[in-house]
Write a protein that binds this DNA or RNA. Structure first.
Lengths: 142, 142
DNA sequence: TATTGTTATACTCTATAACTATA
DNA sequence: TATAGTTATAGAGTATAACAATA
C-alpha cells in the first residue's frame, strides 16, 4: 500500500491535470463548450436517455444538466422526444448536427493530445487511460 | 504512436477525472477551498515568491492569483513581506497557521485517496503519478 | 405523496480590461 | 515607457431550494 506522501503527490498531480484540461478546453473550436462535449459524448456512448439518467452519468446535479440540455437543444445539437412511458420526461438523442459537432470536438482534442504526447509509446497511452478509468471506477462504485 | 481513437478515449477519461476531483473537493474540511490548497501547496513547495511567479506556476492569470492571495491573507494563512528589490511587489510566504491548514487539507485528500484506492498496488500509484506528471510536463514545455 | 424536470439564486473559479504605483 | 499588482466586470460551471407537472 502506498503511503501518505505518495497519495499527497498523486493529489498534486491530479490538481495540475485540471490546469491542463482547462488549457485544452480553451482551444475548442466554435461555441462548443467543454460541458457540451461531455453531454454529447455521454448521449453518444450510451444512447437515448432521460435527463435524470444523464445527470447520474455526468455526476452533476439534474438542475445543471437541465440547463446544459436546454443550451444544446437551442443549438439544435440534441432533440427531445416525448417519453411514451412517462409524460414528465423526454428522451434525449443527438441530432445529425450534434453528432458532427461532437466528432469535430473529439477530433480536435485527440489532435491536441497526439501533438503534445508525441513521444509517448502506445503502451503508455493505454496504461494511462486504464489507470484514469480505474480511478473513476473506484470513486464511482463507493 | 497511439491512434485517434485511443486519444479520444484518453480525453474522455481525463474529463471524467475532473468529476472525481470535484467530488473530492466537496469533502474538504473548513472554509478551505481547492484553489486555496493549490496556492498554499505551491508556496510550500517552492518557497517565498512574488504574485507573478505564483501565477506562472499555477498557470492562472495574475488577477485571479491576486484575489486568491488576498483571500488567504485575510485568513492569516499567508503573509506578504515587502520585497527589498522592488517596491511594487511583496514576497509571499506561509504562516504557521497556513502551513497547518495545508497539512490538514493534504492529509484529508491523501486519506480519501488511500481509502478509495485501497486495492491499488504501490507500483500503480507511483506509475499513475508519474504519467500525470509527464502529461503536465509535456503541456507546459510546449 | 413521491418523482421528474425547470427555474431562481448564489457560489467558485477563471479571464479581460482598465487602473495605480513603481521601475 | 514598461512592468507588478489590484480591481471591476463578465462568463462558465456548479449546487441548493422552491416550484410545476405528472406518476
Amino acid at each position: 500500500m502506498a503511503d501518505r506522501k505518495q497519495f499527497a503527490e498523486l493529489a498534486t498531480q491530479l490538481r495540475a491535470t485540471i490546469s491542463v484540461m482547462r488549457g485544452m478546453a480553451r482551444t475548442l473550436p466554435g461555441d462548443c463548450q467543454v460541458a457540451s462535449v461531455g453531454v454529447l459524448s455521454v448521449i453518444s456512448r450510451h444512447g437515448e436517455m432521460r435527463i435524470g439518467r444523464l445527470a447520474e452519468l455526468l455526476d452533476i446535479d439534474m438542475s445543471v444538466t437541465s440547463r446544459h440540455v436546454a443550451h444544446l437543444a437551442d443549438r439544435g445539437w440534441i432533440e427531445r422526444a416525448p417519453d411514451p412511458l412517462d409524460k414528465r420526461s423526454r428522451l434525449l438523442r443527438l441530432t445529425t448536427r450534434g453528432d458532427a459537432v461532437l466528432r469535430t470536438a473529439q477530433d480536435h482534442i485527440a489532435g491536441v493530445l497526439a501533438d503534445r504526447l508525441d513521444g509517448w509509446p502506445d503502451e503508455d497511452v493505454e496504461r494511462f487511460t486504464e489507470l484514469l478509468a480505474r480511478l473513476r471506477a473506484d470513486f464511482t462504485t463507493a
